[in-house]
């Protein structure tokens, strides 16, 4: 047994010098949260490309599969990106769970406190805990699906997933969780590190504005996928992938 282990076991590990780990973990929690929130902004714009039409969404999908670089689609590239996001997600969850109420006393005392304080930031934290907790499961399921079946992403594939596979309630719930959790989280980051050095009222308005924008965009996107899913049920069930007319023509002329 090492000397260090014995010192830690004796409960004297923090002497004479305090561990630097809490500082790093705190920073890492903020950084992983920021990464995930910004990733979700980008993600929303990518999936919302369906609002511009099937061709736009197909183009974005194939771009990430490297089609325009290699002349062939490699869905495995998407799996790699998803794996990276999944690692950051697990890391963030691990760091954030340290702040959760860990027993009934803590939970009930906080709930009573939030109720009597009638203080927005205090109440919002409870929502961050609830939404974060639910995302342990819902976001994990989504990440796993995208990592294992990246080839299923596309106008017919994603539409079919919503309607034929009946996953639209899952995605609707996930949308609400992400937007509320991410919005509150970004606001919290700004006040926690005091950057940008803007007034709280302004930051709050900005936060709700961003949340409303992404919720509206997300709902419209979800609606668009459901519509495509309903209209193309047969194609999805036959395993057909959407290919834009101009690509079909190009492929035919190449033959």
């Amino acid at each position: 047994m090492s000397n260090e282990t014995l010192i830690i076991q004796a409960g004297l590990s923090e002497r004479p010098r305090k561990s630097r780990l809490p500082a790093r973990l705190d920073l890492l929690q903020s950084m992983t949260g920021l990464f995930l929130a910004l990733f979700m902004w980008g993600h929303m714009f990518f999936v919302a490309s369906i609002l511009l039409g099937k061709d736009a969404m197909w183009t974005i999908t194939k771009f990430f599969e490297g089609y325009f670089f290699f002349g062939k689609a490699y869905p495995g590239l998407v799996s790699i990106v998803v794996a990276v996001v999944a690692v950051v997600f697990v890391l963030h969850a691990m760091l954030a769970v340290r702040k959760f109420p860990i027993n009934y006393r803590q939970f009930s005392v906080y709930r009573a406190h939030a109720k009597s304080m009638r203080h927005g930031d205090t109440t919002m934290w409870m929502w961050q805990v609830y939404t974060g907790f639910l995302m342990f499961f819902l976001a994990s399921a989504h990440l796993y699906q995208m990592m294992v079946w990246p080839q299923a992403i596309g106008p017919y594939g994603s539409g079919g997933r919503m309607w034929v596979d009946g996953l639209w309630p899952f995605y609707l719930t996930l949308l609400l969780l992400v937007e509320f959790h991410g919005g509150i989280g970004l606001y919290r980051l700004a006040v926690k590190w005091c950057w940008p050095n803007a007034g709280r009222e302004f930051l709050k308005k900005l936060k709700w504005g961003i949340t409303a924008f992404f919720l509206i965009l997300g709902l419209a996107t979800l609606g668009a996928y459901i519509k495509i899913g309903i209209e193309n049920q047969d194609k999805y069930l036959n395993g057909e992938h959407y290919t834009p007319a101009w690509v079909q023509q190009a492929e035919e002329s190449a033959r």
Partner: peptide, 15 residues
């Protein structure tokens, strides 16, 4: 204050 019972424990609730 460099630990979770110090400044890193603060969750910026700002009550």
């Amino acid at each position: 204050v460099g630990d979770d019972s110090g400044v890193f424990g603060c969750m910026s609730l700002l009550g």
